[in-house]
C-alpha cells in the first residue's frame, strides 16, 4: 500500500491505496468522482482524460502513486458553482453530445487544446488535436463546433481561463 496525496479540483486529498491503483480508479472509486469515464483497455479512447498539473492526460494510463504531489482537475472541477464552464455551455448549445459517455474526456481535452492554442484555433487543428478522443455517436462535427465556439467565447486571456 502507498499513501497518495494530491490536490483534486482544489481540494487536498490523501488516501492509502494499493500501489497498482490506477489514477482513474482512485478518482472514481476512492473519491467518488465518477464523471471521469473508462471507455477502453488500450489507452486510445480518451474518456478518462483529466488535467494533471494543467496538462491533459489519460488517467487510465497512470498509477495514482505517479500523481502523488500533483494537482488534478476533473470534469467535476470545471464549472464555477452553478455556472457552467464556457466549454460545457458550448457543448450544450451546439449539441456536442448524444449518449454523453465521451463528453467528460472531450471537454477536458477541449480545455487543454484551447489552453495551448489560444485564439489561433481553427477547425483543422481541433480535429487533429482530438486524435486521442473517440466518440461513437456524434460524428465529431458538433464537438468540433462546440470547442471552436468556446474558444471564441473565452477570447484573448484564454490561456489561463481554460484552466
Amino acid at each position: 500500500m502507498v499513501t497518495v496525496s494530491m490536490t483534486v479540483n482544489g481540494r487536498q486529498v490523501s488516501k492509502e491505496v494499493e500501489d497498482r491503483r490506477l489514477l482513474v480508479d482512485f478518482l472514481r472509486e476512492d473519491l467518488g468522482l465518477t464523471g471521469t469515464h473508462v471507455g477502453c483497455d488500450t489507452s486510445q479512447c480518451g474518456a478518462c482524460v483529466v488535467h494533471l498539473d494543467g496538462k491533459a492526460v489519460k488517467s487510465c494510463t497512470m498509477l495514482a502513486a505517479q500523481a502523488d504531489g500533483a494537482s488534478v482537475k476533473t470534469i467535476e472541477g470545471l464549472a464555477d458553482g452553478a455556472e457552467l464552464h464556457p466549454l460545457q455551455a458550448a457543448f450544450k448549445e451546439h449539441h456536442g453530445l448524444q449518449c454523453g459517455f465521451c463528453t467528460p474526456g472531450m471537454i477536458m481535452s477541449g480545455a487543454d487544446i484551447i489552453a495551448r492554442h489560444g485564439s489561433d484555433l481553427d477547425e483543422a487543428t481541433v480535429r487533429l488535436e482530438l486524435e486521442g478522443n473517440i466518440c461513437r455517436c456524434t460524428g465529431y462535427h458538433n464537438i468540433v463546433k462546440a470547442i471552436l465556439a468556446a474558444a471564441g467565447e473565452m477570447g484573448g486571456g484564454m490561456k489561463q481561463a481554460a484552466e
Binding site: 489507452s43 488535436e129 486524435e131 486521442g132 478522443n133
Partner: peptide
C-alpha cells in the same frame, strides 16, 4: 507521435 495526451506523458 500518438495523440496529445500520449505526448504529455
Amino acid at each position: 507521435i500518438g495523440d496529445a495526451q500520449v505526448r504529455h506523458r
